[in-house]
């Protein structure tokens, strides 16, 4: 058995680690709250935009065409891989990398030229480890993505898509479903799926009266739709960043909670071990003294 002193030393170091993980857990909880608020704050905008696009698509008719809806024979695609700059958040980065690598493999299998833009050091390193070198690594978008920051990315993609340089854009990120469930997966950003009234009508059926109204379109349904579609693309990208940020904090919260729990359990075990080893030492010393005294008689 190890000496009591050595065990004491280990207990102390485990205690220190548990202090750190506990603090990280608390920080992650606070950040999660803020990130979650931001993700929720974006929702009214998303809902309204989706509903409006559905309504307009209805008004514009089935023969409405827009460059962002065109399905071209793809040759070059862009894959956005979103995760974080920091580790210590459980399976978050691993899963994000896995999703990005799987998406990459799928695109390569279709015989396409893939450009990877990695957001976050972790996903960049993870992909490099799997033999995929990201063409661009962006690390300045941290856990509080602002629309202005992300918009730069969205605008650039739209421009490159419009010029025909890029034919498809996919994004691999961790979707935030609920505090207990996050799902790493891939979505297609461009070209857009043709807007249908179906998605919106599910919600809109409740305000059926509103959808029955004849709207005045200023200038025209087609032109408004052309103005809105790029917005919805940029929003989609922004939403991905927001979701990823919330998922990261949740994952870290859970990971740090279990780390703290494990540390506490270890402290308990070590304390018990320490007591036992101290008792053994005392017993040994006592029996030595008694043995020595008996030998003198």
């Amino acid at each position: 058995m190890a000496s009591p002193r050595a065990i004491l030393k280990r207990t102390q170091s485990v205690k220190n680690i548990s202090k750190i993980t506990k603090t990280m857990q608390m920080i992650a909880t606070a950040k999660f709250k803020r990130a979650h608020d931001r993700a929720v704050a974006a929702r009214p905008y998303t809902d309204k935009l989706t509903r409006l696009i559905g309504k307009l698509a209805d008004a514009a008719g089935a023969d409405f065409a827009h460059p962002l809806l065109d399905k071209r024979e793809p040759t070059k695609v862009v894959l956005l891989a979103i995760s974080s700059n920091r580790g210590l958040c459980g399976g978050f980065n691993t899963n994000a990398v896995k999703a990005a690598v799987a998406a990459h493999k799928g695109l390569i299998a279709r015989g396409l030229e893939v450009e990877v833009i990695a957001f976050g050091k972790r996903v960049a390193n993870g992909m490099r480890f799997k033999g995929i070198t990201p063409d661009q690594v962006i690390t300045h978008i941290e856990d509080k993505p602002t629309f202005a920051e992300v918009d730069v990315v969205g605008n650039e993609l739209l421009e490159r898509y419009a010029s025909g340089e890029v034919d498809e854009v996919h994004v691999a990120y961790t979707k935030f479903v609920s505090a207990a469930r996050q799902h790493a997966g891939t979505e297609q950003v461009l070209p857009l799926e043709p807007p249908t009234d179906d998605e919106a009508s599910a919600e809109a059926s409740t305000d059926a009266a509103a959808s029955q109204q004849n709207f005045i379109f200023h200038p025209s349904a087609e032109q408004i739709l052309s103005d809105l579609l790029p917005r919805s693309v940029r929003l989609h990208v922004f939403q991905a960043f927001l979701d990823s940020a919330v998922s990261e904090q949740t994952a870290r919260m859970v990971a740090m909670k279990s780390a703290t729990d494990n540390a506490n359990e270890m402290i308990r075990d070590l304390t018990m071990l320490y007591n036992r080893s101290r008792q053994t030492q005392i017993t040994t010393e006592l029996s030595e003294i008694i043995g020595g005294a008996a030998a003198l008689e």
């Binding site: 309504k55 109204q213 005045i216 379109f217 032109q223």
Partner: peptide
């Protein structure tokens, strides 16, 4: 501020969508 000048709304305005 509409795309081509200002637009103003009073209550009971007709349904409208504008850029």
């Amino acid at each position: 501020p509409a795309f081509d000048g200002e637009m103003s709304f009073y209550p009971l305005h007709a349904p409208l969508v504008g850029v």
